[in-house]
Nucleic acid binder design. Structure first.
Lengths: 262, 262
DNA sequence: TAACAATATTGGTCTAACCAATTTAAATGA
DNA sequence: TCATTTAAATTGGTTAGACCAATATTGTTA
């Protein structure tokens, strides 16, 4: 049987976090001199090697400055930015990719909706409708709902009669499967949101079926923007750390601009 | 007297660079297994300690992944593998899909221009300008002109600071290289068209530099539509067969709609 | 007091072990 | 013969102790 894939934290990670804590708690301020490596080694009861590896992480991220023969010092700079460095260092920046993917999805799928409204034949419409029906039956089946959701978007892409769009949407949505699942789960915890989302999809379908390309485009755009907001909300709920929230806010600022689709 | 503050590079920094070099030179590819620490230690004639500190830097930068008891591996970034998958979606579309590809390009690059106008930093702008300058020097060098053209579009995609867009544009433009070459050749046969095209690119650059996102978007959209028209014209000239002309007309009808980007 | 020299402190590097996780190869049994 | 189990080899993780080089501190001297 597969055991739990809990990877034992390395010593340097532990030390890194310890030092991080003393910084966030205000015990260490910019300009302060850290204890010598040998003393840290004694204090934490680990080898100097491990201490040094932890310091290396801090150094690379610009949190500390090492002066040979003198000592190790907390860098003089904004406390806020240092906290950001600390939070971003171990937590890899891969989170960012989800936002990038959504940005790409928004552009592509918005156009897909536009083209689908112009080009969809009856079979295409039938496929979209089928996905919609399945979605309607999925209120109490998470996996079915996810499948139907993906199918809905893929059917629209298929309806553009542009196989490249279809391929791109398929790859992107498949790649985001886990994110979408998490977001849906979070959103559907509140009753009513399921019907609300279903209605959103229905309206996209109607505008495509009625060949109102502009409307389909607008609705799809709004739909994906909403997904991003839900995703952000879901992310927020999972973290209580102020620093992380601050860092997320920056993320949001950075990505907010793309919404203008006048 | 104060001597020059040249801080002697630390060993781990040197090793870090060495490994980075062999990665950039293609000697090390994603997924490759690095030699064991002890062997690296021998090969570079430094202690294992220093090797480990260098590996630590690579690790927190997300370049490598260490698996205890197994080895150290070049990490395949999620973004990279996603782009590879997306590339597959595009490559699968064979030669005769130039119109479909152009349709995708129009959507993506239009958005790239929009985002680039909002996010480009001075280095990004510098890169775009460099491509533009090269383009200006390429009136009598077909291949140089083609390279500069591709570079121009890729630089803009890079300026979005969205690596997925960058990857997509790179793949798309690379895939269409031959088509673009043929189109340029056809168009530049008539004198004046070279300067005209150059001017077109310049205006896109200006609007990005001036952060006029809406204008950049509009110009890029028009630019790619024009490329399609030129492509169609070039195709027409190469065929005398009425049937093919008729079939092209159908193509055109089929694809004309997407132009509305109001 | 100012300049210099000796000393102590501190980070940088090295060697040589041993531990723990993992893979690989050999041995074993059905 | 094939699958399973076991033992050995490989590899990263960690420790201890030593020495070097750069810097700071202290003490001495002119």
């Amino acid at each position: 049987m597969d055991s739990i894939p809990v990877k034992s934290p390395k010593v340097y990670e532990i030390i890194f976090n310890q030092i991080k804590e003393s910084f966030i708690s205000g015990e260490l301020k910019p300009g302060d001199k850290l204890p010598p490596e040998r003393e840290l080694s004694n204090r934490f009861k680990v080898s100097r090697t491990s201490i040094r590896e932890a310091l290396r992480v801090l150094e690379i991220n610009g949190v500390i400055e090492v002066r040979p023969g003198d000592g190790t010092f907390i860098r003089q700079s904004e406390v806020q930015s240092l906290i950001e460095q600390l939070t971003n260092s171990i937590i890899k920046a891969e989170d960012n990719m989800v936002y990038e993917m959504l940005e790409v999805r928004r552009v592509i799928e918005t156009e897909c909706a536009f083209l689908a409204a112009q080009r969809a034949n009856s079979l295409d419409l039938q496929n979209i409708l089928k996905a919609l029906e399945e979605m309607g039956r999925s209120e109490h089946d998470e996996e079915l709902g996810l499948r139907a959701d993906l199918l809905f978007h893929n059917s629209i892409a298929q309806a553009t009669n542009n196989s490249i769009f279809a391929g791109l949407v398929h790859t992107l949505s498949d790649q985001m499967k886990n994110t979408i699942r998490a977001t849906r789960r979070h959103r559907f915890k509140e009753s009513g949101h399921f019907q609300e989302t279903l209605q959103e999809h229905k309206e996209i379908y109607y505008s495509i079926a009625l060949k109102d390309a502009e409307k389909a485009k607008r609705l799809m755009n709004a739909h994906i923007i909403r997904i991003r907001e839900q995703m952000a909300a879901a992310t927020l709920e999972c973290i209580g750390d102020d620093a992380k929230i601050a860092s997320y806010q920056n993320e949001k600022d950075h990505h907010r601009n793309a919404e203008g689709d006048k």
